[in-house]
């Protein structure tokens, strides 16, 4: 029994706290390219100071947050109706519909992103279709733009939005909506005053599950985005691999973690408050 309780803590210590301590130690050291690993241990905050003095990092941050936020909104606008439709479908059909949402996960993530490249390229399937159908003789190229990045993130993370929303909407008592209608609420008003507030925890959970990995996303902007798309994941990659500056890369990673822990902690508090209320 004690072992069972200790398991998550052991996991946390071994796979989170120890690596975190390691990364923090490196972040406080300085870059030493003539040693392996290229780190001179020490205790200084120069690396963190650099993150706040060079506007590259701030720009990368803001751009990552903007791209992640827009993509999260896209996921929400697309995922909410999907989750709602599945939750309101006949119970016998729901597993099939959910499976269809999950289906893309059965193939490699990388292959799916490459498939999008094939679709969106200048001579890709989309443009070939547009030219063939005569809809557009000179269609622009989506691949390599920020739109492609948004599309890729929305596509890749949509299930993470749909699933928590579905879980919540499926539980939603339909008699509450009937009560709202009975009390004079038009369908839109009933949705806004009953369904939406009651699915708020699902919205928050879904948004966090999309937003957090999207901020640090590296593969999608690298493959689908243009070169102008500056994201913190790419900056981190550059610091670690191109510059071989492990301490600065570690400092970026720590800041990424701290900035993402904020919204999670807020969400947890919200959840805890919610639990207290229903007690």
């Amino acid at each position: 029994m004690k072992a069972v309780i200790a398991a998550p803590y052991t996991w946390l210590v071994v796979f989170f706290l120890l690596p975190f301590a390691l990364v923090l130690t490196i972040a406080l050291g300085t870059n030493d390219p003539d040693s392996a690993p290229p780190v001179a241990l020490g205790f200084g905050f120069e690396n963190f100071a650099r993150l706040f003095t060079d506007k590259l990092y701030l720009t990368a941050w803001l751009s990552s947050i903007r791209i992640a936020a827009v993509s999260t909104l896209g996921c929400l606008l697309l995922g909410y109706p999907m989750a709602y439709a599945i939750a309101r479908a006949a119970p016998a059909r729901r597993p099939t519909l959910l499976m269809l949402v999950m289906l893309p996960f059965w193939t490699s993530f990388l292959i799916r992103v490459y498939a999008w490249m094939g679709l969106l390229a200048e001579n890709g399937i989309l443009n070939q279709f547009l030219r063939w159908s005569g809809l557009s003789a000179h269609p622009g190229t989506i691949l390599g733009t920020e739109w492609a990045v948004h599309l890729g993130i929305v596509y890749a993370y949509l299930p993470f939005m749909v699933l928590p929303l579905y879980v919540l909407l499926e539980k939603l008592d339909t008699s509450l909506l009937e009560a709202a209608a009975d009390l004079g609420a038009r369908p839109v008003a009933a949705f806004l005053t009953v369904t939406l507030p009651l699915s708020l925890p699902g919205i928050i959970a879904g948004c966090l599950m999309v937003f957090i990995p999207a901020v640090g996303e590296f593969v999608i902007p690298d493959l689908l985005g243009g070169t102008r798309t500056l994201m913190i994941g790419k900056v981190l990659w550059d610091e670690f691999f191109t510059n071989a500056d492990w301490p600065l890369a570690s400092a970026v990673a720590i800041c990424l973690l701290v900035l993402l822990v904020g919204p999670i902690a807020l969400f947890q508090r919200q959840q805890a408050k919610g639990l207290e209320r229903t007690r």
Binding site: E178, A179, T193
Partner: peptide, 20 residues
């Protein structure tokens, strides 16, 4: 005439109180 336009009100067996 949809439910929200009818001059009646209903008390549900489950009460259907809005939990939020």
């Amino acid at each position: 005439v949809p439910a929200h336009k009818r001059p009646v009100n209903m008390m549900f067996q489950s009460y259907a109180l809005f939990p939020h």
